[in-house]
């Protein structure tokens, strides 16, 4: 938080417009990727779209939630949370894929 120096409403407004344009671009890009012709596989499209969504999320979290100027405590908390989330999703997915040979149904 920027308690030390005075806040200027105008500069915030400009920054917000900038971010909003960025978010709109990201949305547009995602839709564009989604409508790429069918010879791009869905897996490829999903991966690309999720990358763009992550950038979009970074804009929101970093600037709107002012995480970029946040304290170490909050970072630490979020790093652990993201780690456990990745563990939950990753290990579960891996466990579901890693069946003993010859037992998969299809």
């Amino acid at each position: 938080m920027s308690d030390s120096h005075p806040v200027d409403f105008k500069s915030y407004l400009q920054r917000c417009i900038f971010i909003f344009v960025g978010v709109l671009c990201a949305i547009g890009l995602m839709i564009y990727i989604s409508y790429l012709p069918p010879h791009y596989s869905w897996a490829f499209k999903v991966a690309l779209i999720l990358c763009v969504a992550s950038i979009n999320a970074f804009l929101v979290a970093g600037f709107l939630m002012h995480l970029l100027s946040e304290k170490k405590l909050i970072y630490t908390l979020l790093v652990f949370t993201v780690f456990f989330f990745v563990g939950l999703m990753g290990l579960t997915l891996y466990a579901m894929q890693d069946f003993p040979m010859g037992t998969m149904m299809h």
């Binding site: 290990l91 891996y94 466990a95 890693d98 069946f99 003993p100 037992t103």
Partner: peptide, 11 residues
């Protein structure tokens, strides 16, 4: 808790 659910050896 789930060794008996048919998980693979690696996991």
């Amino acid at each position: 808790h789930m060794y008996m659910t048919g998980m693979g050896t690696k996991i």
